[in-house]
């Protein structure tokens, strides 16, 4: 890797980090307010990073997103999901990292075979978002299912089912949103910058 690429790695990761910071604070850029709950679209940034820059950068941006969620859940929670669920790093950080990993891997897998950017981006967006929803839900199920919860003295039957329902119902529009937005953004980036999908 020459120095230009090395500097570019640093600046692009920095600016993606900044985008995630801004996204978690600005409505419409990072989340769509829907009354009580907010529909997040930050995962789109992670998926776009994984596709345009490669799986490693996807992982990195996912990590930033996860850490951001964790810090916010502890210092400035915005929803009951934040303060009850995302305060646990296993729920907030691990699924987010894997979003980047899965999205990058799926894009490479399909792009190598089909050479079709929109299709591969679509597949990557759907799998990436699914990873997030499924992992957050199963982590919640695992950590707050009866045994562990009883140890903590929390009666989970109603509370966490409700929270899981919120997370699950959010998952569907999140998948649709990612599926629509990701191919468009990815195509625009490949057309307007020197990046190409053959970065591996």
């Amino acid at each position: 890797m020459n120095t230009k690429n090395r500097a570019f790695r640093i600046t692009i990761r920095a600016i993606l980090t900044a985008i995630i910071m801004v996204q978690s604070m600005t409505p419409f850029l990072g989340y769509i307010p829907l009354g009580i709950v907010n529909l997040t679209i930050i995962h789109i940034t992670v998926i776009v990073a994984a596709i345009t820059l490669g799986t490693r950068d996807g992982l990195f941006v996912g990590l930033i997103w996860g850490l951001g969620t964790l810090v916010r859940a502890w210092t400035a929670p915005t929803s009951p999901l934040d303060s009850l669920v995302f305060t646990n790093p296993l729920v907030s950080v691990v699924p987010r990292i894997l979003v980047g990993l899965v999205a990058g891997f799926i894009f490479n897998f399909f792009y190598r075979r089909s050479k079709n950017i929109p299709f591969s981006a679509l597949a990557s967006a759907i799998c990436g978002t699914l990873t997030n929803t499924v992992l957050v839900l199963s982590a919640m199920g695992l950590l707050y299912s009866n045994d562990v919860a009883r140890l903590n003295g929390v009666d989970t039957s109603v509370l966490f089912k409700t929270l899981a329902l919120i997370a699950a119902t959010n998952g569907i529009p999140e998948i649709i949103g990612a599926a629509v937005l990701t191919p468009l953004i990815v195509l625009a980036i490949f057309r307007a910058t020197r990046l190409t999908p053959d970065h591996i």
Binding site: I10, I15, A192, R194
Partner: peptide, 12 residues
């Protein structure tokens, strides 16, 4: 996104 990617390029 496009302007951010270009900005990163210029910064590099």
């Amino acid at each position: 996104f496009v302007s951010s990617f270009n900005r990163a390029e210029e910064l590099a």
